[in-house]
C-alpha cells in the first residue's frame, strides 16, 4: 500500500464535514428547541406536532447525518487532544480505537433511536 493511502484522510474528511455541520446546523437546533421555544420567542409546537415532524423520513435522515458526523468530528478532535495532552502520540492507535469506537457506538445508537420513533 503506498504511503499516501494512510487512512487519515477518511477521518479528516468526516472531521471536516462534522465541523461544518455542527457549526452551522446545531446552533440553529439548540437555539430553536433550547432557547426560543422555552422563552416563548416562537410559538411552542407542542409534543404531538414535534413527534409528527420527527416521523418524517427527511427529518430523521437530517438528524442522523448531523449526529453521526458530529460524533466523528468529536472523535477526531478528542483523539488528537488526548494524544497531545497525555503525550500519547506513540500509541495513538489505541486512542483511535477508543474514540472512533465511541463514535460508532454513538452513530448506531442514533440510528437505533431514530428508527424506533413511535
Amino acid at each position: 500500500m503506498p504511503a499516501h493511502r494512510s487512512n487519515r484522510p477518511l477521518g479528516w474528511l468526516a472531521f471536516g464535514t462534522g465541523g461544518f455541520l455542527v457549526a452551522f446546523l446545531l446552533p440553529v437546533q439548540v437555539f430553536l428547541y433550547g432557547i426560543a421555544v422555552p422563552l416563548g420567542l416562537v410559538p411552542d409546537p407542542g409534543y404531538k406536532s414535534t413527534l409528527e415532524l420527527l416521523r418524517q423520513p427527511l427529518t430523521r435522515i437530517y438528524l442522523f447525518v448531523v449526529l453521526a458526523f458530529a460524533f466523528f468530528h468529536a472523535a477526531y478532535r478528542i483523539k488528537d487532544t488526548l494524544a497531545d495532552m497525555l503525550d500519547m502520540r506513540k500509541i495513538d492507535i489505541v486512542l483511535a480505537y477508543i474514540c472512533y469506537g465511541g463514535a460508532v457506538v454513538g452513530t448506531v445508537a442514533a440510528l437505533w433511536l431514530l428508527y424506533w420513533v413511535p
Binding site: 503506498p2 499516501h4 493511502r5 494512510s6 484522510p9 477518511l10 479528516w12 474528511l13
Partner: peptide, 11 residues
C-alpha cells in the same frame, strides 16, 4: 490536507 484527501479518494 484537502489535496491529500482528494488523492486518497482518487487512489
Amino acid at each position: 490536507k484537502l489535496t491529500a484527501t482528494k488523492e486518497w479518494f482518487k487512489s
